[in-house]
């Protein structure tokens, strides 16, 4: 692994260890632990989205659907079939991967706008499915009483324990993703982003890699969905609507889509904005979201993460 990544990883781990210590002792930000759990869950999805969009150059406006598939599979299997949550999570991954493969093979033959619309359409269809299959999903009002997670009989029902679980998984996924990025597969993805013609001529199986990374990103989203289900204990279709898909893309783009660290930064920033700092704006948060996204795309196309090296240079000089 590159030394810059190693440093950043170390910094992130330290931050994650210190965060609960501070948060739990300062009452004003005591509930930040709860928000950080959601940040972690969205980070899981967005690392996959970053691999797909920033590295392979393929857009998806339907990732809320994969998040929802994981969440609903876990929720339904645990409440209606009393399955073990961990087994249900694995089942969710299997189902989501299968759906992603079936949708991905024809979709990823499409390019640009067509791919965007196809994934958007897919996301809306899945959302309608969650709404309409009342006997399975509880319809628009959803269902509740989903059990929490436990490990070896130790129940993860405190915020702290869930925080540790979620961020442990985020770190593992991050390391896995960084390893993929800095390998022949990562290079194949980036090469097809820059020139599909040349990538093909070098023998890179471009369509296979597009589908592979699409399925991988769906798997990340599915795991995130299962974690979400067991944390909130309640599911309804409105948590997985089309606007969430857009918000996920927004997080990745605002942070900087050509860099997986950008996805983490954007997720952290926009989740805190949405859950905490934008309460001043009440319902008008989408106005602010739209403005932020537009400003970043127009004036900072590489995202906020692009500012980090610049700032650290200024820091060192100062």
């Amino acid at each position: 692994m590159q030394s810059s990544n190693r440093k950043a990883l170390l910094g992130l781990t330290l931050f994650l260890i210190l965060f609960p210590v501070v948060a739990m002792n300062v009452s004003a930000i005591g509930h930040y632990l709860d928000i950080m759990i959601f940040v972690g869950i969205y980070c899981l999805i967005n690392m996959g989205l970053s691999l797909l969009m920033g590295y392979a150059g393929q857009i998806s406006l339907g990732h809320a659907a994969f998040f929802g598939l994981g969440a609903y599979t876990s929720g339904i299997l645990c409440t209606k079939f009393s399955m073990s949550p961990w087994l249900a999570m694995v089942a969710g991954v299997g189902i989501t991967a299968l759906v992603a493969y079936i949708v991905g093979v024809p979709s990823l033959k499409l390019k640009g706008h067509y791919l965007a619309m196809a994934t958007l359409g897919f996301g809306v269809i899945v959302h309608i499915f969650f709404n309409e299959e009342v006997s399975l999903t509880g319809g628009p009002s959803g269902f509740s009483d989903i059990p929490g997670l436990s490990i070896l009989g130790f129940s993860l029902n405190s915020d702290l324990s869930y925080y540790i679980l979620v961020w442990f998984l985020v770190l593992l996924t991050l390391i896995f993703s960084l390893n993929v990025i800095h390998s022949r597969i990562g290079r194949a993805l980036r090469s097809l982003h820059d020139s599909e013609l040349a990538a093909d001529a070098m023998g890179v199986e471009t369509s296979r890699y597009k589908v592979m990374i699409f399925v991988l990103s769906a798997v990340y989203a599915s795991v995130a969905g299962s974690l979400y289900t067991h944390y909130v204990g309640f599911l309804s279709p409105s948590s997985f609507d089309f606007f969430l898909s857009i918000k996920l893309v927004m997080m990745v783009v605002v942070g900087g889509m050509h860099n997986i660290w950008g996805a983490l930064l954007g997720t952290w920033l926009l989740t805190f904005l949405g859950n905490e700092w934008l309460h001043v704006f009440h319902d008008f948060d989408i106005l602010v979201y739209g403005a932020i996204l537009l400003a970043v795309v127009m004036f900072l196309p590489d995202g906020l993460v692009h500012l980090v090296p610049r700032m650290s240079r200024v820091w060192k000089r100062g």
Binding site: R184, R187, S191, H193, D194, S195, A199, G203, V204
Partner: peptide, 16 residues
């Protein structure tokens, strides 16, 4: 060429 990759990485794609 793969513009956003380094020169070495470009050739490494050749080893794919």
């Amino acid at each position: 060429v793969f513009g956003r990759m380094t020169v070495l990485e470009n050739v490494m794609v050749g080893r794919h």
